[in-house]
Amino acid sequence: MTTTDTHEHHGHAHGSDEPHIPTDRYFINVALVLALVTALETSTYWWPDGMQTVATVALIIMMTIKFFMIILVFMHLKFDNRLFSLLFYMGLFLAILVYCITLASFRFFF
C-alpha cells in the first residue's frame, strides 16, 4: 500500500498502509503558492479589455493548477493509495464529459 514519494516526512514505521504525509511546513509552503496564484487570478480583473481571451485561458490554467494542488496535496491523493484517486477521478471525468457534451449541444462553446 505504500506510495513511493520523495517528500520529507517523519517516518511512519508501523503499518504499510499508512501514507507518508509531509510536515506542516510543506503544507504552509503549498498554501503560500496557492495564495499567490489566487492573487494572480484576481489581478486579471484589472487587465485591459483587449486581453480578455488571454485572461480566460490564463484563468482556466490557474484554476486547474489550484484544483490539482488541493486534491493532490491537501487531500493526500498524491501520497495515498491509488484506489482513492481512481474512485474520485471516475466521478470527475464523467462530470466533465457529460456536462461538456451537454453544453456543447447548446452551442455554448462555439
Binding site: 484576481t42 486579471t44 484554476m63 484544483f67
Partner: peptide, 14 residues
C-alpha cells in the same frame, strides 16, 4: 476545491 472552480468560472471569467 469546488469554490476554486466557481470563483474562476462564475466570478472571474467575463
Amino acid at each position: 476545491v469546488v469554490w476554486v472552480v466557481i470563483f474562476t468560472l462564475v466570478y472571474l471569467i467575463p
